[in-house]
Simulated scan of single mutants.
Amino acid sequence: MTLNKKQVKDCDSSQWDFSDLKAIFLNCTLKPTPELSHTDGLITISKEIMERNSISVQVLRPVDHNIAFGVYPDMTEHGWESDEWPLIYKQVEEADILVITTPIWLGEKSSICTQVIERLYANSSDLNAKGQYAYYGRVGGCLITGNEDGAKHCAMNILYSLQHLGYVIPPQADAAWVGEAGPGPSYLDPGSGGPQNDFTNRNTTFMTWNLMHLARVIKNTGGIPAHGNQRSEWDAGCKPDFPNPDYR
């Protein structure tokens, strides 16, 4: 069991039904499976809280897949021989909750994380049945691990990106564990104190429950009301000669 007594108590005393919700964690580690991912260690806490509340949860490492670079939904239509992003996007599209997770490198989110956000952006101009942008009605958050500072900087970048694409961001939608500056133990290393860190555990718990609650509220109300926010009613910014997906 990954959770502490307080986290288990919260799950056992829950009065809400989340059983029809789906969540996906995109672990933007640079390490392919089955290499140890310290970020995956932090994901496990949030994942277990969701699963104890009957949410269907998937964890995926984009680095395991052949994802092309670019800002179109399918880059095989733009010169690339292969692109697995369309398959990943289908799983993202089915999820009510998206959590983007990343290690910190040189104070920034990983290169894989940047690529994932670019590819999410590629699909952002798709419209839902109400004529809104594709990600409307979904909620997003982020988890971050690292040996040095930069967690809040990464979180600001990721959460801004998600809300810009159409995700709803609940209160305190980020959590992180950051070790001492310089070479030292990472989150899952013996003696790091990461899994036992009360501050990180509290923030991860808050983030997870806030994502679950907001996803429940939005789904119960049938999504974000479609009034005053329908892309299908506007032609502003449409420049067909330019490649930015927002202009299609």
Results as ranks from 00 to 15, higher is better:
Thr2Arg: 12
Thr2Trp: 03
Lys6Cys: 00
Gln7Trp: 07
Asp10Val: 00
Cys11Glu: 05
Cys11His: 05
Gln15Ser: 10
Gln15Ile: 05
Trp16Thr: 11
Asp17Gly: 05
Leu21Thr: 05
Ala23Leu: 05
Ala23Pro: 04
Ile24Gln: 04
Ile24Trp: 01
Leu26Ala: 06
Cys28Ile: 10
Cys28Ser: 11
Thr29Ile: 07
Thr29Glu: 10
Thr33Arg: 03
Glu35Ala: 15
Leu36Pro: 03
Thr44Gln: 14
Ser54Ala: 15
Ser54Lys: 15
Ile55Arg: 04
Val59Tyr: 00
Leu60Ser: 09
Pro62Tyr: 13
Val63Gln: 12
Ile67Gln: 09
Gly70Cys: 09
Tyr72Glu: 15
Asp74Ile: 12
Gly79Arg: 07
Asp83Tyr: 09
Glu84Ala: 14
Lys90Ile: 00
Gln91Tyr: 02
Leu98Lys: 07
Val99Asp: 04
Trp105Leu: 12
Trp105Met: 11
Ser111Pro: 02
Ser111Met: 11
Cys113Tyr: 06
Thr114Lys: 15
Val116Ile: 15
Ile117Cys: 13
Leu120Asp: 04
Tyr121Glu: 08
Asn123Ser: 15
Ser125His: 15
Asn128Trp: 02
Asn128Arg: 00
Gly131Val: 04
Gly131Cys: 06
Gln132Thr: 03
Gln132Ala: 04
Tyr133Glu: 04
Ala134Glu: 12
Gly141Lys: 01
Gly141Pro: 02
Leu143His: 14
Ile144Leu: 14
Ile144Val: 15
Thr145Glu: 12
Asp149Cys: 03
Lys152Val: 11
Lys152Gly: 13
His153Trp: 03
Cys154Thr: 02
Cys154Gln: 01
Ile158Met: 07
Gln163Gly: 01
Gln163Asn: 05
His164Asp: 03
Gly166Leu: 10
Ile169Glu: 10
Pro171Asn: 06
Gln172Met: 06
Gly179His: 09
Ala181Met: 11
Pro183Lys: 10
Pro185Leu: 06
Ser186Pro: 05
Ser186Glu: 14
Gly193Thr: 08
Gly194Ser: 03
Gln196Cys: 00
Thr200Trp: 10
Asn203Asp: 12
Thr205His: 08
Trp209Lys: 04
Leu211Ile: 02
Arg216Asp: 04
Arg216Ala: 01
Val217Lys: 03
Val217Cys: 00
Ile218Tyr: 00
Lys219Asp: 00
Thr221Ala: 09
Gly222Ile: 00
Ala226Met: 07
His227Tyr: 04
Gly228Thr: 10
Trp234Met: 11
Ala236His: 07
Gly237Leu: 05
Gly237Tyr: 08
Asp241Trp: 11
Pro243Cys: 07
Asn244Ile: 14
Arg248Pro: 02
